[in-house]
């Protein structure tokens, strides 16, 4: 292999296929959002330089298979024309996944905006023991599976109760997925168990009289999720982070922790299990 190829390989996003000089190009996509003009360009590129198709990855990414390395520079330029770049492989912060968030009727946070910000700040950063995946989901329905990521972010909501509005119909108690609300119709009382509440907002969006109201949106944080040969689900380390700034601080400190305490080749979960979740929490708190 020429020196040129080695340099390009290191820049990320080029995955060698079995055939000589043939690569699959992995792109940098954020949260699976792709503009229509980008789709048109991808179609052109796949027809001209690949074999007329693309591959969608499990992390909402796009790969263009069957591209000859000699065409790589040309393809890269064409991609740049529609603001597309090469993705990341190896021991780096990978594609940030995100659900529809704001566009979904259950969404509590703007996942796309947050994913773009997280991607901008962390995408492709290396220097830790292994790859690092971040996923952002809009509500506790967890469609993006934040628990499968090294760090998962979940939209949550805190609410308040306007007693005068409540007519004790019992609807909120009926629909709460965790039984956090009890309604006593006869004595006109609502019992709310804040420890049980998972902040999904269902009661707020269904209450006929707007007696439950949104107070604030926030973020739950999960760490240590991974798939692969030995899958493990992430554990929730923070229930409700109030600001985005604090979320970024937690990501910063988590990556620092991973760099400092992780052994070579170890996924973040393994570091956490070895060093201890409590110690991690102390360091990032």
């Amino acid at each position: 292999m020429t020196e040129y190829n080695i340099k390009e390989l290191k820049s990320g996003g080029l995955m060698k296929q079995k055939e000589k000089d043939i690569f699959s190009l992995r792109l940098r996509i954020v949260g699976g959002f792709v503009k229509s003009e980008q789709l048109i360009k991808l179609s052109e590129i796949a027809n001209k330089f690949g074999e007329g198709y693309i591959h969608l990855t499990t992390r909402q990414g796009i790969e263009i298979p069957n591209v000859n390395i000699k065409d790589f520079e040309t393809v890269k330029k064409e991609l740049a024309g529609v603001e597309l770049q090469m993705g990341a492989c190896g021991q780096r912060v990978r594609t940030v996944t995100a659900c529809q968030g704001k566009e979904c009727s259950h969404g509590l946070i703007d996942c796309l905006l947050l994913a773009k910000e997280v991607d901008k700040k962390y995408f492709g950063i290396g220097g830790h023991p292994h790859k690092f995946k971040i996923g952002i989901t809009g509500c506790p329905n967890a469609c993006i599976k934040p628990q499968e990521n090294d760090l998962g972010i979940m939209g949550r909501l805190k609410k308040r109760f306007v007693k005068e509005n409540c007519n004790y119909c019992g609807l909120c108690a009926e629909i709460c997925p965790v039984g956090a609300i009890e309604v006593d119709r006869d004595s006109e009382k609502i019992l709310f168990d804040a420890d049980k509440c998972i902040g999904c907002g269902d009661c707020v969006y269904s209450c006929p009289t707007d007696a439950w109201r949104k107070r604030q949106e926030g973020y739950a944080i999960f760490v240590g999720g991974k798939m692969g040969k030995f899958p493990k689900l992430g554990v929730k380390v923070f229930d409700f982070i109030e600001t985005k700034e604090r979320v970024f601080e937690i990501i910063d400190k988590t990556l620092e922790f991973y760099k400092k305490f992780g052994n070579k080749g170890e996924r973040f979960r393994e570091t956490l299990d070895r060093v201890g979740v409590e110690k991690y929490k102390n360091k990032v708190s």
Binding site: S105, N167, C169, G170, L171, D202, Y205, S206, P208, T209
Partner: peptide, 13 residues
């Protein structure tokens, strides 16, 4: 929930 999202009022449940 969907009825509320469409802007209608729920008088009673």
């Amino acid at each position: 929930r969907a009825v509320k999202e469409d802007g209608h009022e729920i008088l009673k449940a």
